[in-house]
Design a binder for these strands. Sequence first.
DNA 1: TTGTGGATGTCGCCG
DNA 2: CGGCGACGTCCACAA
Lengths: 293, 293
Amino acid sequence: MTTSRSTQSVRAVTLERPTPTAARDAIADGLEREALVTVFGRCTVDYDGRASSQLAAGDRHVMLKPDGAALVHTDEGQQPVNWQPPGCAHDVFCEPVAGEDESDEPEADGSGSGSNSGNGNDSASSSDDVSDSDTDTDTATLVLESTRSTPEERLLVRFQNVLQVSTFAGTDEGELTLSGTEADLRDRILENPDLLESGFTPLATERDTPAGAIDIYGEDDAGRTVIVELKRRRVGPDAVSQLRRYVDALERDLHADTTLRGILVAPSVTERAQRLLGEHGLEFVSLEPTDSD
Amino acid sequence: MTTSRSTQSVRAVTLERPTPTAARDAIADGLEREALVTVFGRCTVDYDGRASSQLAAGDRHVMLKPDGAALVHTDEGQQPVNWQPPGCAHDVFCEPVAGEDESDEPEADGSGSGSNSGNGNDSASSSDDVSDSDTDTDTATLVLESTRSTPEERLLVRFQNVLQVSTFAGTDEGELTLSGTEADLRDRILENPDLLESGFTPLATERDTPAGAIDIYGEDDAGRTVIVELKRRRVGPDAVSQLRRYVDALERDLHADTTLRGILVAPSVTERAQRLLGEHGLEFVSLEPTDSD
DNA sequence: TTGTGGATGTCGCCG
DNA sequence: CGGCGACGTCCACAA
């Protein structure tokens, strides 16, 4: 039933249809080793924290990351149906009763067999493994719990059956390079200010105002102050409001008698945004983050 | 090496350290069967679409969902390092060369051994399996490709080695119930309008204005029109701007000679937002989405 | 820790 | 399909 392969070190360990206690031990071991742990099986999920949710039983894929993140995925959607952010403490244990009792509380009695904070402090899991009672294999329920504070949040996954448990030890030094971002659009304009407007001179980026930081602050060929707000993609009313806030704030801040120019730079704008721009005397320049080859 | 268990039907199939061609066949089979497919191994990832990215080699967990979603997870972070939204067509094949050639293009020569659109139309994968050449097992590279159009996007995952391939067949009818949302906050006020302010009378929700829909539209005990914007959590300047847009739009729309009242309802506001509220004559009422027990 | 705004945001609703 | 706004948004960065 257990199948583990090792070449140099054990990189991946997989159990298929393990008993709850076997699953618990494998998962606890994986958490201990700072491995990435996955569990697939029929489960219910309960969350309580910033909001609260309950999810009826279904087959799902659960991932526990060594940084404390937890993800519950169904067979649909890009987003997990439930999750927990990095920095959480994962715990795994078996509950004696598999049934329909209503009490959500697994009784914080320290019976967790594996505890793992996002900081890698493996405290309180050195000698208490022995105290874990192997409740009846057939009736026990595997439970995953992931908690954090600030804000207080708890995720509880109860498995009715477990089809697979895997632990993966890996390394990932690979860096992600990404292009087509707002930063690329900014750099593009800084390198060639005429793309915005002939005679435009950038003076600062991230210039602070009482309302926030201006993406690009500069002046036009007539010496008028220009405030530029950048968006990497087509924008709606929110971006116009954002630009307006900056223009308003800077006008007050500088006690400007002359009107400042506000320019929204994006590939395109929606109609409503276009109208808002006009209402507030703001301008629009169409530019994409990267040169369209 | 292959370990598959079946109880009633095959629910989960797992290969450990498969050859590239074995991995390819198992994945293609999983996609065919509309299963959830996972692959763990050392890989590079390239994305091109709304933006474009390259990710150097590292150990990652890749999930292909039957609805066309693809997720590439490292051992850190709640978010995938790369992904593809639902509706994509997944493909899997082996490239003959494992090396360092620069060409990103796998040559759209129809050599894909498994193709799966999000709509479940398993076209073009009935009889072409035989034509897949089993390129040299030791030098072949497993490649996952996930593409879509509108916008045109492509994700390419190349595996230097595969530690595990799994396919999961499951069902998930479970419904998620969530509380603590903005809708809960709205209902709370509609049930007890005095929570907002003594004498408040809600008249409509989602009332349309040229600037968008107002969360709650009503009037106070003096008959003045009230525009309410709801937020489930502490808010910043963006929410104030949003409320302001609605108030402005409705004032114009109604040619209102009397000033409309705009009230932001949220658990709390940041200082900058507070100041913005004051500058624009808007009000704030502190309320949480659910009764604090 | 909190504030602020970007994101290949994703997702649902509606025109 | 595009617009629009919510989201347990997540996330990096600055104060």
